[in-house]
């Protein structure tokens, strides 16, 4: 962890992202479990966006936007897997699958767009 080790009172001890990782996860879970599209999409965007923010802040990723795009692929992949599973079960997974794929596409566009047009909006380090 690149945290500028030193006395604990000296380095920065605030980060806005953890709260939103923790909010995004339950919202996305509820949305996907009950098939509520807005909650699923919004929750996933919040969750992945905050993770991308943390990765950037901790300097695990050089660019938050690219991290977001990478995460979007994982989510979209999960959605496609659900779509595939839908054929194998009786329960209706289509809405859930499309909301995940949709969230993935949305974030991918956001990530690529941000990388191209909004580099200045990178969170300050």
């Amino acid at each position: 962890m690149d945290e500028n080790p030193g006395l604990s009172e000296e380095y920065r001890m605030a980060s806005p992202w953890p709260l939103f990782v923790a909010l995004g996860l339950p919202i996305a879970e509820v949305g996907i479990l009950f098939g509520l599209v807005p909650l699923a999409v919004g929750g996933l965007v919040l969750f992945c966006g905050a993770i991308a923010g943390i990765l950037r802040e901790a300097e695990y990723a050089a660019s938050g936007w690219r991290a977001l795009a990478a995460l979007s692929l994982v989510i979209a992949g999960g959605g496609l897997a659900l779509l595939y599973a839908d054929g194998a079960t009786e329960s209706d997974l289509v809405v859930r699958a499309y909301s995940m794929v949709g969230a993935g596409v949305l974030m991918f566009v956001g990530g690529v767009g941000g990388e191209l047009f909004a580099r200045d909006a990178e969170p300050a380090i």
Binding site: S8, P18, L19
Partner: peptide
Amino acid sequence: DDMAFPRINAIAFWLLPPA
């Protein structure tokens, strides 16, 4: 100095109120 992963620490706490 602090916990090994301070941000994960914060995430772990903030998952609790929604729970």
